[in-house]
């Protein structure tokens, strides 16, 4: 897990350094739209599944526009999936009220809310990952700060990203050291793990201190400054208004149902 994490942060930085239409968009535009996306997806009633479908468009569009490999996102989703699974696991057992499905089938309402939780999880996590992968933490934090997020929060977010890498790096070295000194693949005792964790914390703190020292040595004063000058262009405005309008439409009208009626000719 720790190893995978180190790779994740590095890979995220690599993806963020790509050149694409999605990367060229202003960080503020992407942040605002993604935030609206999260709010819209979370605001649906808890049994809603079908109406969520149109929202797949946004992460898919961002990913394909940004040239981010879908496999990468899917892998991250799988890693995080158990959390969502456990949150929704008991819904089908606790909420047994029958609900009619199209085609005359009946299921417990809990299954619907369970499916809804999973759908929302997949949508929100992939949108957030797509946002960071197409923007980069530095540009994103600088953008958030310009949007009015208090500087302390923006800097915290930036450091969280940086130090995640530091901790995973230390963890990788310690795991290697442990593996070399562990006989015949036997799992070390809990006591050893406790000591390892303690060391990991201390070493990460030391290293974090040195990195912070290096930042201060080069004039860091709490303001995030980046090379790429972000300029709000017509494209950013179009991107923002277009998606906001789409999210609103998909929130107030059940677009899949609408499309279904259109196809079956019920609408006339």
């Amino acid at each position: 897990m720790a190893m995978a994490h180190g790779g994740t942060v590095q890979r995220m930085d690599e993806l963020a350094a790509l050149e694409s239409p999605a990367h060229r968009l202003d960080a503020r535009a992407k942040a605002v739209v993604t935030f609206a996306f999260l709010v819209a997806v979370m605001s649906f009633p808890r049994h809603e599944v079908v109406a969520l479908a149109p929202y797949v468009l946004y992460p898919v569009a961002l990913l394909s526009l940004g040239g981010i490999p879908a496999r990468w996102i899917l892998k991250k989703l799988l890693v995080a999936a158990p959390f969502a699974l456990f949150i929704g696991l008991f819904n089908p057992l606790l909420d047994r009220q029958p609900v009619a499905l199209p085609g005359g089938l009946f299921v417990a309402a809990g299954w619907l809310s369970f499916a809804s939780i999973l759908a929302r999880f997949a949508l929100t996590v992939s949108a957030a990952l797509a946002l960071v992968a197409c923007t980069g933490m530095d540009r994103l934090c600088a953008g958030l700060e310009r949007l009015g997020l208090p500087r302390a929060f923006a800097v915290q977010l930036l450091f969280l990203h940086r130090y995640l890498f530091v901790i995973s790096d230390e963890a990788r070295r310690m795991r290697y050291g442990l593996a070399l000194r562990t006989a015949d693949g036997r799992a070390p005792s809990l006591r050893v793990y406790g000591s390892l964790l303690g060391h990991l914390l201390l070493r990460s703190m030391d290293r974090a201190q040195r990195i912070y020292g290096a930042m201060l040595a080069r004039g860091f004063d709490g303001e995030i400054r980046i090379l790429g000058t972000a300029r709000w262009t017509a494209r950013d405005a179009l991107f923002t208004t277009g998606w906001l309008a789409f999210f609103a439409a998909a929130r107030f009208w059940n677009l899949p149902e609408f499309a279904g009626r259109l196809l079956t000719g019920e609408l006339r």
């Binding site: 930085d13 020292g213 004039g219």
Partner: peptide, 25 residues
């Protein structure tokens, strides 16, 4: 100040951004 461990000093996503970190600040 050039630190003992370059990994402590290089924290930006690309080399150019890292070298520009000081001048920007």
């Amino acid at each position: 100040m050039v630190f003992q461990d370059p990994d402590d000093q290089l924290f930006m996503p690309t080399v150019l951004e890292d070298v520009a970190f000081g001048p920007l600040n």
